[in-house]
Simulated scan of single mutants.
Amino acid sequence: MPMHAAATLAAPRAPLTVTEVETPAPATDEVLVRVRAAAINPVDWVIQGTGRITYRWLRTPAVLGSDIAGEVIAVGADVTRFRVGQRVFGLATGTDRGRDPLREGAFQHSSILLERLTAPTPESLTDAEAAVFPLGLSTAACALFQPQHLGLRMPGTPASAAAPEVVVVWGGSTSVGMNAIQLARAAGYTVVSTASAKNAEAVSALGAEAVVDHGSPSAVADMVAAVGGRPVAGAVALGAGSTDACLDVLSRAGGTRLAMASTPVSLDSLAGGRHLFPAMLPVFTRIGLATVRSSLRARRLGIHAGFVWGSSLRDDEMGPRLWRETVPRMLADGSLRPAPSPLVVGDGLEAVQGALDRQRAGVSAQKVVVRL
């Protein structure tokens, strides 16, 4: 059996170490990719630091990471869209329940991608730029287009002749937010968003009609004013405190659907702490109470609210439509561009643990990337 190098999580809460693992053969609907760049998402250090509680199904050793860019080195029997040597990027789902975390993780030299969650990399993009897309783009698409969330029409679907509805994106400078703005605009919606003053110009450049300072005491009122009485298709809540803020906006502006893509309390101190127990008890108690409070409030207001799982598109019709049709078309016509911009922090598998630590320490309007 051929082998390759991987940055593996040998045990829960252990630092990543470079080891040799078996190189898998692709199944009929898969491609095997030589990974050239991998991006870091908060979920990676959450799994590493709190996986005993948050990802109890995940067995170790495991390879983490969702965002892959590289070139195809083998294709499954039913794959016709890709050829060996072609540059691609896609979403790895190895840490999901029922998946194989050694076959599908991003932090290794060779990884499996499902054909239906993979797109060709245009010549205009570097691997580092392509790697910023997969999880942020997929999560944004789930929030906007899945029927259980906002249920909006996808890009390429004819819009009605009526005035465009407004989509509220609270947290526009996040990875999910930047992609949500671009997808919603391409689908014909007007977007109003939030960002810090530092990032407002970047968020506006992606297509937000108005950008409100989320730190302002009048942020909710400013957002309602930006909506301006127009019909609201729904809101996407990103970042601590965003759920309650979005409920305030929707209750005053008339919207009835909310997609939540963040925990109400950050897990960074818990994930990076020396001990998980008993420090987890007050943190998860706060998360549980905040979630129940927000859910009850949404129900009282008549707002449908649900949490988004970014890789759930793997098992519905939207995933193939997004990755096979929408993403290539938007990249070709320039309506989708890599955002946030890649922040390359190192080269090689030995740099991955430092990259996770860098992401957990905080980045703004950038996505941490390691070149492999």
Rank of each mutant, 00 (worst) to 15 (best):
1 M>Y: 10
2 P>M: 14
3 M>C: 10
5 A>Q: 15
6 A>W: 04
8 T>Y: 06
9 L>Q: 06
10 A>I: 12
13 R>P: 08
18 V>P: 12
21 V>G: 08
27 A>I: 12
27 A>C: 14
28 T>Q: 14
28 T>D: 15
33 V>D: 11
36 R>N: 11
39 A>K: 02
45 W>Q: 11
51 G>I: 02
53 I>M: 13
61 P>F: 10
61 P>M: 11
63 V>N: 09
63 V>G: 09
64 L>I: 07
65 G>L: 08
65 G>D: 12
72 V>E: 07
74 A>F: 09
82 F>L: 04
82 F>V: 01
93 T>Y: 05
98 G>M: 12
100 D>P: 08
110 S>A: 15
112 I>H: 05
116 R>K: 14
121 T>M: 15
123 E>Y: 08
123 E>L: 14
125 L>S: 06
127 D>M: 01
133 F>T: 05
134 P>L: 02
134 P>A: 04
136 G>T: 07
140 A>E: 05
141 A>M: 07
142 C>P: 05
150 L>R: 06
153 R>A: 15
160 S>N: 12
160 S>M: 10
166 V>A: 03
167 V>H: 01
168 V>P: 05
168 V>H: 01
175 S>N: 07
177 G>M: 00
181 I>W: 01
182 Q>S: 01
182 Q>T: 01
189 Y>G: 01
204 S>M: 04
204 S>L: 03
209 E>D: 02
209 E>Y: 00
211 V>F: 00
211 V>K: 00
212 V>L: 11
215 G>I: 04
216 S>D: 12
220 V>N: 03
229 G>I: 08
230 R>W: 10
230 R>M: 08
231 P>E: 09
233 A>Y: 06
233 A>C: 11
233 A>G: 09
233 A>D: 12
237 A>N: 13
239 G>R: 02
240 A>S: 15
240 A>L: 08
242 S>R: 02
244 D>S: 09
256 T>F: 06
259 A>M: 01
264 P>M: 09
277 F>T: 10
280 M>N: 12
285 T>E: 13
290 A>V: 02
296 L>E: 15
300 R>Q: 15
306 G>A: 15
308 V>W: 07
308 V>C: 08
312 S>T: 14
315 D>F: 10
319 G>N: 05
323 W>N: 02
324 R>M: 07
329 R>F: 06
329 R>Y: 08
329 R>G: 08
332 A>D: 15
338 P>W: 04
339 A>M: 06
343 L>T: 03
343 L>G: 08
345 V>F: 03
347 D>S: 14
349 L>A: 09
350 E>N: 14
353 Q>I: 05
360 R>S: 06
360 R>L: 03
364 S>I: 06
